[in-house]
Amino acid sequence: MDLYEYQAKELFGRHGIPIPAGRVAATPQEARAIAAELGAPVVIKAQVKTGGRGKAGGIRTAPGPAAAEDEAGHVIGMDIKGHTAHRVLVETATVPFEEYYAAFLVDRAEGGFLAMVSAQGGMEIEELAATDPDAIVRVQIDPETGVDAETARQLAAKAGLPEAAAQVLERLWRVMVAEDAVLVEVNPLICTTDQRIVALDGKVTLDGNAAYRHSWEYAEPADSLEDRARAKGLNYVKLDGRVGVIGNGAGLVMSTLDVVAGAGAAPANFLDIGGGASAQVMADGLEIILADPDVRSVLVNVFGGITACDAVANGIVTALELLGERGLGRPIVVRLDGNNAEAGRRILSEARHPAVRQVPTMDGAAETAARLAAGA
């Protein structure tokens, strides 16, 4: 269960981790009132469960209440990677002197916990890991002993963080254990000009299996693509690429993602319609993918078994009929093979939809989708 930033920070505050003063607002008028109460320049931060808010314009500064209302009006309702910002966090603007990274997570491969700490924060940890992996200190945490004051001091020292950060690391571990989290992350954890350590951002994922031990009230409206897909019973994961992918069976979808990457493009999602998908399931899947503004082309890769290719083809035709003009903007590359493949190809050929392109091979379909996503 992923939390919004403001929810993560509420947990941080409960466990004594310093955070900027602020509150969440659902309207521009509420944002203005909060900024007036804070009496200082503020930051307006879109509350969505995805990264890339800053690059998308979802984090904005405001010198006063009127500007806060104006900026909140721009951010509320914004779509960021398929997530709609229904709320903003309005908090006191805090200028960092230095930025760090700190996280605790469940390490399933080792059957324990992993600490990740770096003196280089403020950037995506995946980018840092790729460009300078030695900048991240990784330490296995014994579940029996956990992180006490001495362990926290060692972590801070090894990563090059100031001694004052050790107390925050110890308290982040307390959040991990007390709240049954599988991930607790702060990026950036900052040192201010007056040497205070503050959690400027926060990401927490709770273990839903432990809900019976807590009084969590984190239910949210189904506003993300993942939520909408889940409501339709689809196995969907949003990714950061431009080629939407639909397949039947997790193995085939994973292989398709690899082939798309090999063709020089990045997949925009993982979507498995399952082994016995109906035309309606196919239509639902295509509707979800075409709702993603990042998608520039779609690759439907189906090997008919329990799922017959004619049902898939009917689903594509049905979805495009329902979408109308919304289904015209992006090309859909279809590769059908296996059970009733000829019938499925015939259905698509007879439909003559201008968005649909049929390619007989998996590699060829991936290359075509990649080229179309690049605008070639």
Rank of each mutant, 00 (worst) to 15 (best):
A102L: 10
F12G: 13
T92H: 02
G58W: 01
A319G: 13
I125N: 03
L105Q: 07
E150P: 02
Q120T: 07
V333F: 02
A119Q: 04
P188F: 14
E91N: 08
G264C: 10
A374G: 12
R296Y: 00
G338Y: 06
D70A: 15
E287M: 08
I273C: 01
A266D: 05
M1S: 15
P293S: 09
W173L: 14
E124N: 14
I288D: 07
G54N: 00
V182F: 08
I141N: 12
A149N: 03
R346W: 03
Q29S: 12
T131C: 09
V359K: 08
A351K: 03
I136E: 07
D207M: 03
W216L: 11
V106Q: 02
E185A: 07
E163H: 14
D79W: 00
Q29P: 00
G111Q: 08
Y236H: 07
E71R: 10
I197A: 07
Q29F: 06
G315A: 00
V139L: 10
V245N: 09
L290G: 04
L172R: 13
G82M: 04
A341S: 10
T50L: 08
E30G: 01
V312S: 14
V137D: 12
V237I: 15
N269W: 11
V237E: 05
D337S: 15
Q154G: 15
T27G: 07
V260N: 07
V88A: 11
G57Y: 04
V42N: 12
V43E: 04
T256R: 01
S118G: 12
T92W: 01
K158Q: 06
A341P: 05
G39V: 07
D227Q: 02
I125G: 02
L206W: 07
D2A: 09
A67W: 00
T84S: 07
A46K: 05
A165L: 06
